[in-house]
């Protein structure tokens, strides 16, 4: 008697095999990333976290001192100045900076006359090194021969402002060095805009939606993830912002931030304290990820 295998079983078994094969390939492709993450990210992060509880000069064996580095950090006024600045810059980044990037993406998506040229121009600041544009801004904001003060002196010859070195101007001068460079946000949002199915828009047109209503009720909600990623990128860039400050104000005019404290501690050979500062930056970064993820419901499916 010939035993017949049901067709369904054969199909299920071959599906299982394909699934396992796919999984194996997924893990093989993930392996380099995991290896790089472990060696270049996780190990340094663990080292930073561990040494933040120690007194360490970078050469000799670290000595465990408990929470002393954190207590010392929390007792310095520049720490609170840095947190306050970070809060201000993060709010500006999440609203004005990302908002501007989204607006440009929506305009470029409509492909008006000269959109390709505008896109290229918008990209230019991203290919110029921070050191170069920091110098440009330094001259733009200079008190004696800066373009801004020269222009303002047309209306008030007595204007005498050191934009990068006096509070409260320095905060806004620093802000202007990155505020309109939102090409990352624009590219992210344009990607999502292009992925919106035409049928969704056609349905809205049939329902009588105008261009503004389409942008507000269809495009914007469907770009939620890209905007969320844009907010995360913008805020984390503010957390890690060092060169822009070091090359312009160097912390003058109440523009201190956590990376500047960190680098100054390293200059003093105080690696334990510097790493305590790094741990705080890490916590702030992870908190940002979590809050933005929840606010933009990034773990939920859009379509």
């Amino acid at each position: 008697m010939v035993k017949l295998f049901p067709l369904k079983n054969i199909f299920d078994n071959s599906m299982k095999g394909a699934k396992i094969k796919t999984l194996i390939w997924i893990y093989i492709f993930l392996l380099p990333s995991v290896a790089i993450f472990l060696s270049f990210y996780l190990v340094p992060i663990v080292t930073v976290a561990f040494t933040s509880f120690t007194k360490w000069d970078g050469f000799n064996r670290p000595q465990f001192i408990g929470l002393s580095n954190f207590i010392k950090l929390f007792n310095t006024s520049v720490f609170y100045e840095s947190l306050f600045n970070l809060l201000g810059w993060s709010l500006i980044a999440a609203t004005l900076h990302v908002g501007f990037g989204v607006l440009v993406a929506f305009v470029l998506y409509k492909k008006p006359f000269g959109w390709k040229f505008t896109r290229a121009v918008f990209m230019v600041p991203n290919v110029i090194s921070v050191a170069a544009w920091a110098m440009i801004y330094k001259y733009f904001f200079r008190n004696d021969i800066g373009i801004l003060n020269t222009f303002l002196r047309l209306f008030n010859p007595n204007i005498n402002i050191n934009w990068f070195f006096e509070a409260p101007y320095a905060f806004w001068a620093i802000t202007l060095t990155w505020l309109f460079y939102a090409v990352v946000v624009t590219l992210l949002v344009m990607g999502d805009l292009m992925a919106i199915p035409e049928s969704v828009r056609e349905g809205a047109i049939i329902d009588g939606a105008n261009a503004l209503q389409m942008a507000w009720y269809i495009d914007l909600p469907l770009c939620r993830n890209a905007i969320g990623v844009g907010v995360i990128c913008s805020i984390t860039a503010r957390i890690a912002m060092y060169e822009a400050i070091y090359l312009t104000t160097n912390g003058a005019g109440n523009t201190m931030n956590l990376p500047v404290i960190l680098v100054r501690s390293i200059m003093d050979g105080n690696y334990g304290f510097a790493n305590a500062c790094a741990v705080i930056m890490l916590i702030v970064g992870v908190l940002t990820l979590w809050v933005v993820d929840k606010a933009f419901k990034m773990d939920e499916k859009i379509y």
Partner: peptide, 19 residues
């Protein structure tokens, strides 16, 4: 003085002394 005090705080405070 400390390296960070010289390149950091000292130079950051100078504008207040100068003006």
């Amino acid at each position: 003085i400390n390296a960070s005090l010289f390149t950091g705080d000292f130079s950051n405070f100078l504008p207040y002394l100068y003006n």
